[in-house]
Amino acid sequence: MMFIKVGLARGMIRTLLLAAAVPLAAAPSTAAVQTPLPAADAALPAYADMADLVLAAPVIADATIRSTARIKGAEAVGLAPGKQRFYVEADVASLIRGAAGLPARIGYLVDVRLDARGRAPRLRKERVLIFARTVPNASNQLQLVATDAQLDWSAALDARVREIARAALAADAPPTITGIGSAFHVAGSLPGEGETQVFVQTADKAPVSLSILRRPGEQPRWSVALGEIVDEGAGPPARDTLLWYRLACGLPRALPATSVSTLSPEDAEIAAEDYRFVIDALGPCARSRAISGDRGPA
């Protein structure tokens, strides 16, 4: 394993360690009509994991690692058990996301998992995707949005990352969900017929609502509207799209009591049941990464 000059490495490491940490959270996001990436590669991380990284990262780059230096002692503070920290220098092949561009060679810290024998993987010459933010006053230095926000490159992973990044920057991207507003239920003329509408609160105050229709003898149908006009024919979002992610990972699991406080007990019960139907239809927001505790050296 190649080592870079110690004096240079220490200066860069101090710069990175002093960089302000930014929470890994939902950033901009996608259109109501999206084409999900075919789930042909079982080795891909969960969609929610990838969306977490892409939305948190102002800079996403395809790069090849040129050299590494192992970080020890005080400069490895916060290192999780079973991992090793490295200072990496890498050559940038392409910039997937990043408004200001990048120099041809960059440096950053990364934590990698050790194998069963306690050995780190060979990183030099590896092609990787990195998810990062820039470091003030150091144009060639990056800080990963999570300590391990470096993934081995593959064509399928690259395609998924680019698809999420494009969706995040779309003009009609759905906003970050912050909670649930009011909910209403209107009974139909026949027993078991009715419509529930749930208004979703968003970070930028953009209107988002859920509509659930029930007809006797039929399965309930639901749709989501990104705007003031409700299109009952729109239907639910496809799984593994950014709109699905916003809903599945952003909506509370149960309808808050405050949302139905003005309804009769009967209507409130139906509204809560309809909301549960939506949550069950969306399915779980499956993640495998330790998001909350793995933000990167601060």
Rank of each mutant, 00 (worst) to 15 (best):
R133E: 11
R133N: 05
N137F: 11
A138P: 01
N140H: 14
N140F: 09
Q141W: 05
Q141P: 00
L142K: 07
L142I: 13
Q143E: 06
Q143N: 04
L144Q: 12
L144Y: 12
V145R: 01
A146W: 00
T147K: 05
A149Q: 05
L151W: 12
S154Q: 10
S154A: 14
A156T: 10
L157K: 12
L157P: 06
A159C: 08
A159G: 13
R160Q: 15
V161H: 07
V161L: 13
V161K: 07
I164D: 01
A165C: 13
A167F: 02
A167R: 03
A168N: 14
A170K: 03
P175A: 15
T176R: 15
I177C: 04
T178P: 02
T178I: 14
I180S: 01
I180V: 14
S182L: 13
A183L: 05
F184N: 05
F184P: 00
V186E: 12
V186F: 04
A187C: 00
S189Q: 13
S189W: 03
L190W: 04
P191Y: 06
P191H: 08
P191F: 09
G192W: 04
E193V: 11
G194K: 02
G194S: 05
G194C: 07
E195M: 14
Q197Y: 02
F199P: 00
F199Q: 13
V200C: 02
V200Y: 01
A203K: 13
A203M: 06
D204P: 01
D204K: 05
K205C: 09
A206P: 01
P207R: 03
V208C: 06
V208Y: 03
S209K: 11
L210C: 02
S211M: 08
S211R: 13
R214T: 05
R214Y: 04
R214P: 02
R215Y: 09
R215W: 03
G217F: 10
Q219L: 11
P220K: 03
R221T: 06
W222A: 03
W222R: 04
S223D: 06
S223P: 00
L226I: 14
L226R: 10
G227L: 07
E228M: 04
E228Q: 09
E228K: 09
V230F: 03
V230A: 08
D231I: 00
E232N: 11
G233K: 10
G233R: 10
A234K: 06
A234L: 11
